[in-house]
């Protein structure tokens, strides 16, 4: 029983990472109707920026904030320079551009920072010792990681719910034409969505790096679980994506431990994605899309 509880808790901790990335994916999807296949490679690149700053002598949280801001800038710039011309493109071009970005960021990480696996510090534990709390059920890093994820998700929720800018972004995603008429600068809100998504990804990257170690392909598996989480919760529903992300984390851990073993874990993501598409394409919390002709 303790084993199951341990698996669930550590599933929730990794689920937090999936939830953050899933939230980023949903944000991009709502803003620009794109699946951003480059989300995780961008996050890895951001994590390298953080590591570079820390190695240059910055304090951890200083580097953390700087990385979040730089990532935000990268996200905004990408939307303004590249993706805005793809707004009405066919799906081939839209998917193609994010695949191109995936390749470019992946190669850039390797080229600028090297292919060797690197250690990344955790702010929640002294180096070397993996302190365990709750009777050894969960490490301090996992606990801190989950806390950060929850804080970030709450902040994003508050931003969309209680600020004018958040309202404008929701409006622009729901109905661009009408939003434009009431004076919302739709183009910039889309760019803002990309910026926020990139920041969320960066936080997820910095949180997962101490666990899995940093290398250019650190997050390629995470993308798949995040997509599964986003789809499970509803690809256009931010709250659903968060719940979905946590759920996928737990399913992955329990499934890996008791069902399929570690060497078929990725297949589990494939099964979740296909399962959702067969049983409930709108996800658990999403609305079915109805097109009016």
């Amino acid at each position: 029983m303790a084993g199951v509880l341990h698996q669930i808790l550590s599933g929730l901790a990794t689920g937090g990472i999936y939830a953050s990335v899933a939230l980023a994916l949903v944000m991009v999807y709502r803003a620009t109707h794109l699946l951003n296949f480059a989300q995780c490679e961008m996050a890895t690149f951001s994590t390298y920026i953080a590591l570079t700053l820390i190695q240059a002598g910055w304090p951890y949280w200083g580097a953390f904030v700087a990385t979040v801001l730089v990532s935000f800038g990268i996200g905004v710039a990408l939307e303004r320079l590249l993706l805005r011309r793809m707004e009405h493109a066919r799906s081939l071009a839209a998917v193609g551009v994010t695949i191109g970005l995936l390749l470019i960021f992946n190669a850039l990480s390797g080229w600028l920072f090297g292919f060797t696996v690197k250690q990344f510090p955790s702010p929640f534990e002294s180096s070397g010792g993996g302190g365990a709390v709750l009777g050894g059920m969960i490490s301090t890093h996992e606990l801190g990681m989950t806390a950060i994820t929850l804080v970030v998700v709450a902040a994003v929720y508050a931003f969309f719910r209680h600020t004018t800018l958040g309202l404008a972004m929701r409006a622009a995603a729901a109905n661009p034409e009408s939003s434009r008429l009431v004076g919302i600068r739709v183009g910039w809100t889309l760019a803002l969505g990309w910026g926020l998504a990139a920041s969320l990804g960066a936080i997820a990257g910095m949180m997962v790096a101490p666990e899995v170690f940093l290398d250019p392909n650190m997050m390629s598996g995470i993308l798949l679980y995040a997509f599964a989480g986003a789809l499970l919760g509803g690809i256009d529903n931010p709250a659903g994506a968060v719940v979905g992300g946590f759920a996928v984390g737990v399913i992955e851990n329990l499934g890996g431990a008791y069902l399929v073993g570690t060497d078929l874990k990725l297949t589990l993501a494939l099964v979740i994605i296909t399962g959702v598409l067969v049983l409930r394409p709108a996800g658990l919390f999403g609305r079915a899309v109805v097109a009016r002709v």
Binding site: L35, S91, A228, L231, L270, I273, T274, L277
Partner: peptide
């Protein structure tokens, strides 16, 4: 499952397939 829906779902499912198959073969 993906193609009866409108949207980028095929890209998603096939991407998952591409990532999962090497692991299955192993």
């Amino acid at each position: 499952p993906a193609l009866r829906l409108t949207g980028p779902y095929l890209a998603l499912v096939t991407f998952a397939l591409a990532v999962a198959v090497p692991q299955m073969l192993r």
